[in-house]
Every structure is written in structure tokens, then in C-alpha cells.
Design a protein around this nucleic acid. Sequence first.
DNA 1: CTGAAAGCGCTAACAG
DNA 2: CTGTTAGCGCTTTCAG
Lengths: 310, 310
Amino acid sequence: VSRVLNNSSRVAPDTAERVQRAIEELGYRPNVFAQGLITRKSRLLGLLLPDIHGEFYSEVLRGADTAARSMGYHVLVSSDGHSGEAAMLSSNIAGMLAGVAVMITEPNAYLIRQAGELELPVVVIDKDVQGERVDRVLVDNRSGVAEAVGALMRTLRPDALFFLGGPESNFDTQDRAAAFIDATGAGDGRVQFGQYTVEWGFKAAQRLLKSRAGRPTGVLAGNDEIALGVLQAAQAMGVDVPGQLQIVGFDDTRIASMVRPQLSAVRVPMADVGEASIRLLVERLASPDAPARTVVLRTALALRGTTAKE
Amino acid sequence: VSRVLNNSSRVAPDTAERVQRAIEELGYRPNVFAQGLITRKSRLLGLLLPDIHGEFYSEVLRGADTAARSMGYHVLVSSDGHSGEAAMLSSNIAGMLAGVAVMITEPNAYLIRQAGELELPVVVIDKDVQGERVDRVLVDNRSGVAEAVGALMRTLRPDALFFLGGPESNFDTQDRAAAFIDATGAGDGRVQFGQYTVEWGFKAAQRLLKSRAGRPTGVLAGNDEIALGVLQAAQAMGVDVPGQLQIVGFDDTRIASMVRPQLSAVRVPMADVGEASIRLLVERLASPDAPARTVVLRTALALRGTTAKE
DNA sequence: CTGAAAGCGCTAACAG
DNA sequence: CTGTTAGCGCTTTCAG
């Protein structure tokens, strides 16, 4: 039976068929635990996200799930709840995992070290972690920012452009802020850090819009929620968008196209991030000693209602 | 070692400690497969959703994950992609699952039957499936609708109230439509079915708002996205909300409070749905022969900017 | 090509 | 209280 199922070694065709029939008649299903015990392999992959909340992460998960399924694997998600605990990695379940993809968006010494030392194949998402056999999936934030700023600068002066990011500790926000400074030559006052929320975007924009001098004519937001907050502040204060203020969001989640006017945004291919990390993992399973690889995913600029029409 | 780890049967305190020390020194971790092979138990629970997309399902997942973790379990999510395939249940991974929670929102004979026949403990979410040992988690749509309609009728005539639902085949939409008809005495024209999307909500509202006679003064939407579409249509047509048109969404996802004005909505406790299903599953694992249970979760009405201020 | 048998690492039952 | 042992169901030699 084992030889038929794993179609290994030579089995006579008619024997094989006889076995197959018996399998079906009896409804036989191999015991996964016995299999795992002897082969030390499994078809379960771990995906560790900072949070399983909202449009962004659920899109990563969806991409990962789809990719995994197409290759006969399954994905076990877990959020580390920003706790740095990485419950999944220390729980007994870790022993069932064939590999893990870890998304690291904030400094987390514990997680980073654990990811590097794990005897399991590891893919790190978002953070350029060192490690012998640690593959990486990165998003090209810099070119995304450059493209967005370029679009803004077609109609606006660079010194009236602002960046409203998420938490300063967030790696993506850091990257995006740095790229923004490179692209616009912005000094400190025009780059602000806060939260990845509508509320924070609203307040920050309100503050900016109130000031007479140095009022922004263009804002690049750290994510779509911040951009939405900026849009709402403008609307509340009677500032015309995109006439007096242009806004570009980041991520291009479904929210960006749900609101009116629709948000222009730098599209981050979240599903592709999920997919690439699973693919990398499965490929490493196949060749454990291959050199570490890095996949960099490009963004794309989606111009919609909050930027000047060409 | 086994006895110490499972703190079963009497072990001398000092022996236990000696074993513990050795475990730590050696970094010993029990092999999950060997354990599973003999105990036929696992700490892995399956969660089958129609889709892993968006605010709604990611919230269910979050509730489930939190609950599972607090009880030492893990959740393996999978979407059936509306395909009725239930890949998770037929794949080899099914053998690692201690139980499954299945969310059924549309007719799916295959899934329903499979859920009822599975030898695994099963919890069915959203659909009242029959089955010996099948527990259920339901949302009390009817009382949610009644409450929303009640609020609308404080200032509006019942015959100017409309219900714009999702697909007619969706169980929740069916429930909500039926409850709406009960509460308002609405005939067919005032209950419409479409898609759970902003676009459909927009178009349907546009059509309704254009007609001179029988123009709605209040709309109950099948979910928040539809409600948002209705709001945008009103704004686009210069219809004042809530002055000329009041809108109540359903689910109360984060989207409802992200937009301006904020959507009034019937809050569906999505995280609680996830949590309750995991809890039911774990409790059944403990007592396999207990009678089937049904948990009904209440909704709550969140009155915000799209309904008349009191 | 096929039958037989040796474990994989663990738990639980059984002696001591 | 602790040592020993019989499997759990599978894959993979090793003989035939």
C-alpha cells in the first residue's frame, strides 16, 4: 500500500490497481502522524504576522494560502500580537511545521534572533535579516515613494510636500520617510510620524492645514488609513482635493477605492508578498542547501481622485 | 520523562525536578507526531471560511485565533473559495485536525453534508445545520433588524424604508430581508438583492433616489459596504444624510467608522463568533457525547452620523 | 516485483 | 513510586 501511494519503487500495474480499489472500498486514509513520525516531513507551513487584522494582512494571508494550496501545503497563521512572543514558534505545534514565514515590521530582537536560529527553514518578510539559509521577501518602498513624489512634483513644488507616516519604529515607515527625504530634500518638519490610523491622519492634517505659512499642497501618507484621515480633514476644512491639496496613500488596500474621491495610492502587492514567501519556503524545502535568496516586489502607482488629473 | 511532562501518575518530586533539568539542558522537545500517533489527539483546529478577505472574516479569524491560543490550541484557516470544495477537509491535513468550525453562508449541499457526516467534531457557523453532535453559532439577525428598523421608525414612515441586501442566496441576507419585511410590512419592491459591494449599493441607491414617487427616506443595508455605496450615491446626488435620507449599515466593520459621516450600523460581533466557535469545539473535545449546543450571538445597534440625532 | 520486519518517539499498562 | 515493554501506522531496507 505504501509503495502504491508514494508510487515509489516498481509495483506491478495490476497489483497497483488492486491496491487502489481496496483503498477506495475501505475508505483508507494514511495516518498523517505515523507518516510524519517516520518521514519527518509535513505539509504545514507557518505564517507569523504582526497582526491578523484588516485589509492589509488578510490580503497577505490570502496570497499565502492560495500559493500554499496550489503546492499541496497548508498555512497556519498566527499573529504575534506585537508581543514579540512568537507563540507559534515556541508552542508544541512548532514541531509540525515544515517551515515558517515571519513578517517583521518593528524592531523585535527576540523574534529576529529566533528567526535566524530556528532549525526550520525561514523566510523573513519586510526586514532584511541576516542568516545562513534565511530567504527574504522585501517590498521596494523606495521606488514606490520616488514614483509617487514624481507624480506630485509634476504640478507641485517639492517644498510644499509632506510625509505623514506611521510609527517611527516601523520599518516600512522608516524606509518610506527616508526615500521621501531623498526625493524631495525635505527637512525634518515636513516628515512626521504617528499612527497608522484615520484618526492620526486627520489630526496631523488638520494641524498642518491650519498653519498659514508652509501649508502643504501635497501629502504622501504612510498607509491608506492615514491618507483617508488627511482627506477627511481637508473636506472638513473646506480645502479642495485635489485642487488645493493632493493626497497619495500607501498600500492601496480596498479602502482606497471604496471612498470618494477614490484615493490615489502606491500599490503594495500584498497578496504577492504572501505568495512569494510561501513559494520561497517550498523551494527551500526542496533544496535545503541552496544559497539564501531575496525577492524584491515592486510597487505600482495608482492615480485616482486625490491627485491632479493629467 | 513522559510522566513528568504529562504530570500524570505519581512521580517523586525530586525525580521530577531532575528530569526537568535534563529536559532543559538537552533542549528536549517531545515529538508531536509520535504523540499524535499514540494519543490520536492534536491541538490543531480547522476554521473554514467562505473567504479570508476583508474586515469581516479577518475579524472572525482574529477572535478564533485568540480563543484558541488561550486554550492551548491553534487554528488552521482555509477558505473554500465558494467552490464548495472544502479543500481542507479532503486533504491529508484533515487527519491532523482535532475539530473543525465551518462557516456556511450560502447553500452548499456538499459542504453541509460533509460537515454533518464528518467523524470530527464540527461547529457550524451561520447556518442551522442538523446533526447529532454538530454545535452551532448563530447571529441573531432578526433582533438586529428589528432594532434598526425601530430606530428608523422613530422619525420615518415605515413605507419609505428600503432594504438593500447582498445576494439573495446568502443566508444572512435572507434572514435580514425576512426580518425587515416583518418589521415594516414592506412589499417586494422595497426589498432588493444584489452584491455585498460598494458599487452595487451605489447603483441601487442611485436608481431609488432618482424616482420621484416612492423615494426612500431610510435604507437598511445588507452590510457596511452596501451602506457606504448608498451614502456615496446620496452625496453625489446632493441628498442630505441624515436629513433627507437615513442609512443603517450591517456588521459594523471598521469601515463604518472610517468614513464621514460615520455609518450607523447593526454591529455583528464577528470576533465573538470566532471565539464562540472555538470554545464550542474545545468543549466538545472534552465531552464528546454532550448534546449539541447552539450559541446565538446578539447584535447591537450603533447609532452614528447617518441616522437622525435624537 | 513483493513479503517481512525494523524501527520512528511516544504513552500507558504492567510489574516490581 | 519507577523501570520495562507493547504497540500506534507508516516507510524503508532487506531478502527472496
